[in-house]
Design a binder for these strands. Structure first.
Lengths: 143, 143
DNA sequence: ATGAGAATAGTAATCATTCCTAAATTGTAA
DNA sequence: TTACAATTTAGGAATGATTACTATTCTCAT
């Protein structure tokens, strides 16, 4: 009748240089790099690391809640900042950018009280043009 | 010096049976099917339609704003209801479900007034357990 | 009807991601 | 330290979703 350990602790994890390097890389940037970008970053430190290792560790860390996995526009992206915040995706340059503000109201609580869904987390993604691309477009039009 | 037509009207579109069938299929369900599911639906009516046609038309219709493209969990999903609404993804059965409520506040306007981003649309995705899966899990635990 | 542009079916190619395996590495306990 | 079992790794093969390509067919304004 024992409850057993929570899923996330079922097996012990070894701390490898690869895993540490991946986490370092992810935490050193404010962008939301995809696996192949992270691979290139880590390769500067560990030249023979393989893509499989990058994917496996990102997946593990996301499952453990250390990082966020963002399902956005084609490739998956990863975010070293795991506290809830708003995202913006630029339709023009395809960047994924943090919005400098908190989720203003507690939407999650509101939705939770109104439905039977058990909400674990939520994500808000705005799409449109980032300030730079907006400028670029304006210049093009008046040219 | 002429401004030209807006991007979305630059080239004329032919209304083909394939396109109509794809839209019909999508509008006949409240789920959010992926391209391969839509392909199977449409194949009942047009047995020789090709995947390429399905993808191309879904992409076009999404660009035109007739349907929504949801970048969620692996495959892309499509939504025949293009008015803004909230989505829920079940971590257990992987379903993507409409939440029966409107975006309560106008988050978009708030964010718009606070930033320089030009927001075209936004998406809110809750993740967790749907009512059925929540029940299933409870039964498993007490068993 | 007809002709120019647009869309199609079918297939090949691409891209991201996962899977596989033998060898190497990690933490632990003597 | 040493030894060991579990875990992780590199590298490459395999998969799966999506896109690209092309010769042919279709659409619709004239």
């Amino acid at each position: 009748m024992s409850a057993g350990k929570p899923e996330s602790q079922k097996k012990k994890k070894y701390l490898t240089p690869q895993r540490r390097a991946i986490l370092n890389a992810l935490e050193s940037v404010v962008t939301h790099p995809s696996a192949d970008v992270i691979y290139e970053m880590v390769r500067k430190e560990l030249p023979i690391i393989s893509m499989g290792t990058v994917y496996r560790n990102l997946e593990q860390m996301a499952t453990e809640g250390m990082i966020l996995r963002l399902d956005g526009g084609g490739q998956k992206r990863y975010d070293g900042n795991s506290t809830p915040h708003l995202h913006f995706r630029c339709l023009c340059c395809n960047a994924m950018i943090d919005l400098p503000m908190n989720p203003h109201d507690d939407i999650q609580k509101i939705v939770q009280t109104l439905t039977d869904f058990e909400i674990k987390s939520y994500e808000v993604i705005f799409t449109g043009l980032c300030p730079e691309c907006k400028l670029t477009k304006k210049k093009e039009q008046t040219a």
